[in-house]
Simulated assay, not measured.
Amino acid sequence: MRLIAALPPLLASLALAACQPAGGAQEIEPTPSPSPAAASGAAPKPSGDAPDLALASLAGEYRVAGIDGTEVGGGIGLALTITDTLIWFEPRCAGFSWTYSYSGGDLATDRPQKPRPPGGALVAGPMGATCRIAVHPEQQRLAAALDAVNAARRTPSNAIELTGGGHSVTLYSQ
């Protein structure tokens, strides 16, 4: 009788283990140290021999695979939506919405709720209703990274990598 009672949890744990990567949580390949051009805020340009990994457009629906070189933790999944003018993720009412411009690998983002120094510039953008909701630490980590990014490129693994300000966000199409 005990064997029958223990069977459902055992099967559930086996099914869950089959969906996990071997060796537990894995780190995303770290982003190389920024070049002097990247440190000055300029996006690196590919050399004549390197393939052009710049993107024509960022628009799409994405799964956030990594933030700052590590997988999204905390047992949550994050989805990012990019339209022609906005980048956002849920809950938008908590301030997770950015306006952006993108051209030839150069990316500029801004949001009204972005922490900024006193007297810091603000690029006006659409504001929605605000909400009082608990924000997961991984959502805060993603927001901080999106506040800082200034470049976008396609990686050899076909991911989109947003980088800048010492941060990176790795995205895969959904």
Rank of each mutant, 00 (worst) to 15 (best):
T81K: 08
P156H: 11
P156G: 10
N158I: 03
L14K: 09
I76E: 04
R153W: 09
Y172V: 13
Y62D: 00
R116L: 10
M127L: 11
V169L: 06
I4S: 15
A54P: 00
D147H: 05
S101A: 14
A12T: 13
G166Y: 11
D68I: 06
T163Q: 11
G166F: 05
Q139A: 07
G69P: 03
R141Q: 09
S97F: 02
A124F: 01
G104V: 03
A151E: 11
L146S: 00
T130C: 03
K45A: 15
G60D: 10
D106T: 14
T83D: 15
P9V: 15
I67K: 05
T170R: 14
L122A: 14
D84G: 13
G95A: 09
T155G: 00
S40V: 04
A152F: 05
R92S: 10
Q113V: 09
E61I: 04
L7I: 08
G24N: 08
S157D: 13
E90T: 11
G120K: 02
P8H: 13
G66T: 14
D68W: 04
G105V: 01
V169A: 06
Q26F: 04
A38T: 12
G69T: 09
A151T: 08
Y102F: 14
G119Y: 06
P126L: 09
D52C: 07
T31S: 12
Q113G: 08
G73P: 01
G95M: 08
L86Y: 14
P91I: 14
K45P: 01
T99W: 01
A5I: 08
E27I: 03
A12V: 14
R154Q: 14
G125H: 06
G104L: 06
R2L: 13
A59H: 07
L80Y: 12
V64P: 02
P126R: 11
D110I: 06
I76A: 14
T163G: 05
T99C: 06
Q26D: 05
D147R: 03
S101T: 15
R116C: 10
I160L: 04
S101D: 13
V72S: 07
R63Q: 10
A5H: 09
P8K: 12
A6Y: 06
A79K: 09
W98H: 00
I82C: 00
F89H: 15
T170M: 06
L11P: 05
E27K: 10
L78M: 12
R141V: 08
P117Y: 06
A151L: 03
I160D: 01
Q140T: 14
K45F: 09
A134Q: 03
S13Q: 08
P8N: 15
L55K: 07
R132L: 04
P126Y: 01
A6S: 12
G125R: 03
P156F: 09
Q26R: 13
L107V: 10
A59G: 06
L78Q: 08
P44D: 15
P9L: 11
A151G: 12
W88M: 05
R154V: 10
H167N: 13
G165E: 10
L14N: 10
P91W: 02
Q174M: 10
A65Q: 07
Q139S: 06
P117I: 12
P51C: 11
E29F: 03
T109S: 00
A17M: 07
M127P: 02
T155C: 00
Q113N: 06
E27C: 02
L78C: 10
A54H: 10
Y172K: 11
G166A: 09
I87N: 03
A22V: 07
G164L: 07
